[in-house]
Simulated assay, not measured.
Amino acid sequence: MNRPARLVLVALTASTALLLTACGSGGSDDASSGRIKGAGGGGKASARTSPSASPDGAERPKITLPKEFQANFEGWTNSDPKLQAILNDGREELRSKYAAIIESNPDSQAVAFYNSGASLTSARQWIKSFTDTDDGLIGKVTAHDPQVHINDSGSGVLFYCVDERNASTRNRKTGEVVTTPDKPENVLQYRARLDMNSAGVWKNVSLTTVAGGCN
């Protein structure tokens, strides 16, 4: 079956705070073009979670995804350790939401670990929209072209593209598969603002997505 993918539609309704003003002052970032300066960009992601120690001492949840759903991250590296830390936590934030959908767990502690405030509320709403209809995820998404920056207030700004055209939903009861149409608007640009907490974790505090924003 093929219809406009809910994967994309729900990502859009989950957007609660526009980040075009979160890129710093003085015109240092070109928000109108959907690009920011200080960009650098990873690795691959592989649904259970368990604590895992990290170099900064924070005990982060370990997130794994099943073989039937892959989240690949391309170009997610940066020579600046501070910017790399934002990339690492931004990547795990997205993976935590995919894992929560697959686990049918909108109250996932891993999602709460990487989100706060409005971002946590919208993340749980997005996950719940899948669990309410008993849908999971299969296929593959690719997150690429990350751009990362620390603005004048000390917040992290992370823009990246997510290609959802090879991902589908699958109903757990009926087995019905809904594929994502192969259209440019199904490559979304995610725009996140992150604040570092006292444990050294960069948590999403706001997120918006732009359909076709990476074209």
Rank of each mutant, 00 (worst) to 15 (best):
G43T: 15
D132H: 01
W76P: 07
D89R: 00
F130S: 02
A110Q: 00
R191A: 08
S28Y: 10
T121M: 05
E92P: 05
G136Q: 04
W126V: 08
Q147N: 08
D182Y: 08
Y98A: 13
S155D: 15
S96C: 00
L18W: 09
T21M: 11
R6S: 15
G57I: 09
A71C: 04
A45E: 15
W76I: 06
W202F: 02
A45I: 15
W126D: 11
M196Y: 07
E92M: 04
S155T: 14
Q125C: 06
A192N: 14
N78I: 03
G27K: 07
T209C: 06
R172S: 08
R191I: 05
V178R: 11
L18S: 14
G40C: 12
M196V: 10
K140C: 05
I36D: 15
T174F: 00
Q84H: 01
K128T: 06
Q189S: 09
G213D: 08
A118R: 11
S28D: 14
T179L: 08
T64R: 02
A14D: 05
V10G: 11
W76K: 00
T131P: 04
P184H: 14
T169R: 02
A211E: 04
E74W: 03
G34S: 13
D107M: 10
G156P: 04
A53N: 14
K183Q: 13
R191N: 09
P181N: 07
V210F: 06
D195F: 02
T180K: 01
E93Y: 03
S129Q: 08
S168T: 07
E92Q: 05
L12N: 05
Q125N: 10
T16I: 07
A192F: 01
